[in-house]
Design a protein around this nucleic acid. Sequence first.
DNA 1: CCTCGGTTGGTAAGCGCTTTCCAGCGTAAA
DNA 2: TTTACGCTGGAAAGCGCTTACCAACCGAGG
Lengths: 348, 348
Amino acid sequence: MDPDQPSSATLADVARRAGVSLATASRALNGSVGRQVGAALRDRVRQAAVELDYSPNAQAQAMARGTTATLGLVVHDVADPYFSTIASGVIEAAAERGLLVTVASTQRDPGAELRHVELLRQARAQAVVLAGSRIDDAGQLDTMRSALRAFTRAGGRVACIGQDVLGVSTVVVENRLGAAALAAALHREGHRRFGVLAGPPGHLTARDRAEGFGYSLADLGAEPSPEHVIACEFSRDGAYAATAELLERGRPALDCLFAVTDVMALGALAALRDAGLRVPDDIGVAGFDDISSLRDVVPGLTTVRLPMVEMGAQVVGIALDGDPGAVRRARVRGEIVLRESTQRPSLR
Amino acid sequence: MDPDQPSSATLADVARRAGVSLATASRALNGSVGRQVGAALRDRVRQAAVELDYSPNAQAQAMARGTTATLGLVVHDVADPYFSTIASGVIEAAAERGLLVTVASTQRDPGAELRHVELLRQARAQAVVLAGSRIDDAGQLDTMRSALRAFTRAGGRVACIGQDVLGVSTVVVENRLGAAALAAALHREGHRRFGVLAGPPGHLTARDRAEGFGYSLADLGAEPSPEHVIACEFSRDGAYAATAELLERGRPALDCLFAVTDVMALGALAALRDAGLRVPDDIGVAGFDDISSLRDVVPGLTTVRLPMVEMGAQVVGIALDGDPGAVRRARVRGEIVLRESTQRPSLR
DNA sequence: CCTCGGTTGGTAAGCGCTTTCCAGCGTAAA
DNA sequence: TTTACGCTGGAAAGCGCTTACCAACCGAGG
C-alpha cells in the first residue's frame, strides 16, 4: 500500500497476510479444478486480497496456465463502418467468453496485416480473426497462409470473414450471390442499362460483387458494357472520382449505377448530385452492405444487407469452437433491400 | 518442428541449436542495452531462430521486463462512428509506439466500463484510455475514480476523452464552446426559435452541448423555451422518437432543431421527413461531431466538426508522455460547419 | 612481464503465477 | 484396532524470458 511504490500486491503478499501458502492462496482466489479450500482459509485469503487490493497478473497467469484470454482482430480500417460494426460483434462475442480483443487496423497494407498476425502470435492470442477482403495476389496469399500456419502451429486458432481462400475457418460472405440477386431485383424493376463502380481490380470482395452482378445481368440479357464497368479506389472518394469521370466521358444513358459498397455508393451519389443529376429520377444508384448509419440518407439507398454484427459474433464461434484442427465454414447471405434510390419513376 | 505438438520453440531451443547460452540468445535477438554479442554468435543465433521459426513469448517478456506493450481503450460503443473514428486514431498512434490496443465496448453500461478497467489492470496495460461521456452520478464517478487510482497505483497511466471530471489526464472536448458558437452562427443566419434534442439528463456531453447552446442563445435573447428542450435517448432512434413526439404536441413554430450529435440529427431528419416537413425549407436541423460518412447526406448537415482521429492520437500522447504522476490536459475545439440543413430560404 | 580496464559469454536469480506431488489428518470399512 | 481412502494444505517445480553478476580473455600501459 506504499503510495510511491508503483507495483501492486502479489499473490505471495496475499498469502503471507492471510497466513497461508501460495498454493492455498491461488486456489482460494482462482479455484483450480477439483480442489477445495476450507471455508475459513478461503475467506481469510479473500479478505486479505481485498485489503491489499490484489489484482492477479494476467501475464503470469497466462504463463503458468499456458493460455491467454486474448483474441486478436485484424481489420483493414476500424474507422470504416463496415469493419467497426463487425468489430462490435466480435468484441461482444469475445466478451461473453471472457476474452479481451486486441484490434489492429492495417489501413489496407498487406505488410501491416502480416506484422500484426506475427504480433498476435507473440502475444499468444487464443485466436486471430481476419476481417477484410483478400487481394488476388498469389504471393501475398501464400505469405499470409504461412503466417497463419505458424500461428496455428503454436496452438492458436484462426478464422476470417470474407473469401474462403486461405484454407482456414471462414465466415464466407456470399458476395456473388448477393450481387446477383440485387441485379435480378433491379432488372425486375425495369432497369436495363447498368454501370458498375467495381473497386480495385485485385480486391476479391469488390470483384466478387461486380462479377456476380455482371453475370446475373448477362443471364438476363442486360450485361453492362465494359466501358461502364470501371475500376476505382475502394472508398467514397474513389467512387466519386470514378463517377465524375464516367460523366465527363459524355453522359451515359444508364438506368442505374451499382457501387460495390454503400460507402462507395455515397461517393457516387455525391458526384451525380454535383453534376446536376437527380437520383433516382435521372439515374438509380445501389450499394452493398447496408451500413446502419446510412439507412436514413435521402434518397434511401438500395443495397444488400449484410448482418455484420452477427458475422462478427459468428466468426468468433467458428474460430474458437470445435476441433482445433478442423476448418469450419459458415455462409452468410445478403438480403436485398430496395429503397428509393433505384425507384425510377420512368420505369414504373 | 514436430507438427502435432502445438507449441512453438522457446529461446532455450534456439540457444541450444545455436550452441550458446540462454543469455546470449536473448541478447542476440532482443539486444539488451549496453551489451554486444559477437557477430559470429549473433548470426548463429539469428539463423537458429529463423530455422526454428522462433517467436518470442510476449507474456514471458512482459513478466521478465516488468512491462507490457498493451494499451487499453474503453469506449461506449465501437459501432458508433464517433467512437470508431476515435479508436482509429488511438490504434494508429499506439502502433507508432509499438503498442497493441485492446478495445472494450461497454454498450454504455457503467458496470461493464468498470469491469474492463479492472481487466486492463490485470493485463497490466501500459495505459487505459477512456472514451465516452461521463454520467452525472457522484457514486459512479467515485467508483471509476478509485478504479483508475488502483490502475495508476499499479504503475499504469490513464487518460480520457471528454469531460475533465475524473482527475486524470484528459483531452477536453469544448462541447459548451462549440455548441455556443454553433448557436451564435445559427442566430446570425436568422434563426430565432430553437428546439433542442438534449439527450439523456445525466449525460455530460449531451448536457454540455445542450446548455452551451442554450446559454449562448440566452445571451442573444433567443433562449429556447423549456418545452422545446427535450430529453431523449442518446441515439438515432431516441432523437426520432423525441422529434415525433414534439411534432405530435402540435407543430411548433420552430426555425431550427439542434440535436446534440449527428447521429441524433439523423433521427430528427427522418422524423421530420416522415411527418411531411421539409428540411431546411420548413425547419432547419443541426448536429454535432461531423461524422465523416455522414458528410454526404442530403441536405448537408450543419454541425460542429470534431477532429476525432486527432483526438484519438492526442489522448495516447497525453496518456503516455511526460511525468507518470502528472495530470495533463489538452483542449480541442470544434469547428462550425454550416451546410444546407440550416439554410432556410425564408430567413435569407 | 604484470596489472588493469573493456569486452563478451555464461550462470543463475528472479518475474508472479499454477499445479503436481506429497504429507497429515479424520473417518469409514474391515 | 488396523488399513484404506478421501480431503485439505504446503513445498516446489516449472512457464519463457531478462538481467544482474561473475569469469575469461583481449590488448594496452607501466
